[in-house]
């Protein structure tokens, strides 16, 4: 099962993603800011990161920059999700190392399809077996 790490300071948002992604067959872990995210990322391997932009202590850009500088984590795909819909925000996210930029609120189907594709899986979630 693919592992996803959700990094967002809002517990509601984390729960929202968790429910969607667990439904889609992911094993979910959470972190409340970039620092906790890095700690978790160093201690178990993930297949994808979902990163919020604005967070206390360490924001999403810094988190992305850190993982892309760390050999063990550099190749893990990352989606940045933010409420900011400006083109400049997307450019900044891509410069920091994001692979995709999505705007909040994210639709369940979009998140599922994109996360599954980015982790190399087909359309329908594997049946609970």
């Amino acid at each position: 099962m693919p592992h996803v790490l959700i990094i967002d300071d809002s517990s509601t948002t984390r729960l929202y993603y968790r429910e969607i992604l667990e439904e889609a067959g992911f094993v979910v872990d959470e972190a409340i800011n970039g620092i906790e995210g890095l700690e978790k990322a160093m201690n178990r391997s993930f297949d994808i990161f979902l990163v919020d932009l604005n967070m206390p202590k360490m924001d999403g850009y810094t988190f992305l920059g850190q993982i892309r500088r760390t050999v063990e984590l550099e190749a893990v795909p990352a989606i940045m999700i933010s409420t900011q819909a400006r083109e400049a925000d997307q450019v900044k996210a891509y410069a920091a190392g994001a692979n995709l930029y999505m705007i909040k609120p994210v639709h369940a189907a979009d998140l599922t399809t994109r996360s599954r594709l980015i982790t190399g899986q087909g359309a329908s979630p594997r049946m609970a077996s």
């Binding site: 993982i67 892309r68 500088r69 550099e74 190749a75 893990v76 920091a96 190392g97 980015i118 899986q121």
Partner: peptide, 15 residues
């Protein structure tokens, strides 16, 4: 971080 980013892009494309 450019090298790491390229690796991540390669992962995504491979996947």
């Amino acid at each position: 971080l450019a090298q790491g980013r390229l690796e991540a892009v390669a992962t995504v494309l491979k996947n």
